[in-house]
Amino acid sequence: MQDLGIRVLFMGNNFIRLLKGLGVALKISLTAVILSVVLGILLGMVMTLKNPVTKCITKIYLESMRIMPQLVLLFLVYFGLTKSFGINLSGEISAVIVFTLWGTAEMGDLVRGALISIPGHQYESGAAIGLTKLQIYRYIIIPQTLQRLTPLAINLTTRMIKTTSLIVLIGVVEVLKVAQQIIEANRYTVPDSALWIYGTIFFLYFIVCWPISTMAGWLEKKWKN
């Protein structure tokens, strides 16, 4: 233990490689988040429709995305699609597809919740002072919906980042995979490197997620009243 394993981090470009690995995961999460937000807003609006058919379909979609572990969804797309339909998807593409499908469901439910949480008298008092339907949405409904939605959408981002760590299990070379490679390469020279490398990854994730979730909490508190 005299010779601390932490030095393995600074050998060669190991640390940079770890960061790049994390970058791969982050890139996938951000792509999925952006797609989820756009599609989720649409889904959420569809979910507020009173039409029984859309209600039923969106409900089934939401529940099936929610009840399956994300790793199962990843397996279904990565192994299942490849085998059944002969579509050869890379791990990265599979991940973006799965996390977008899942994120859209979650975002859609958040949007639906925010929309129905605006009380009816808000529409009525807007109409009462003579605003047109468009103006009511522009000045009353959308600003309030956004205030409720933004912190929740930011929280979805941290969930997405944490969930993206799963992609190592379908063979994507991301931060955990890079870590395994580094540890393997230094197996004999630095036998206790795993402790330091995995500890570092733990804190790297924390450093990425913590500011985001803190900001979400702060916004939520600020906009509560």
């Binding site: 760590s165 540890i183 206790d192 402790l195 990854i201 924390f206 997620c209 979730s213």
Partner: peptide, 23 residues
């Protein structure tokens, strides 16, 4: 709470299972 909520379970497990034995 902050540590637990801002890190993935998978990374926590890697640290526990592969990292800690080295200590």
């Amino acid at each position: 709470i902050e540590l637990s909520r801002n890190t993935p379970l998978l990374v926590q497990l890697f640290f526990l299972y592969f990292g800690l034995p080295k200590a």
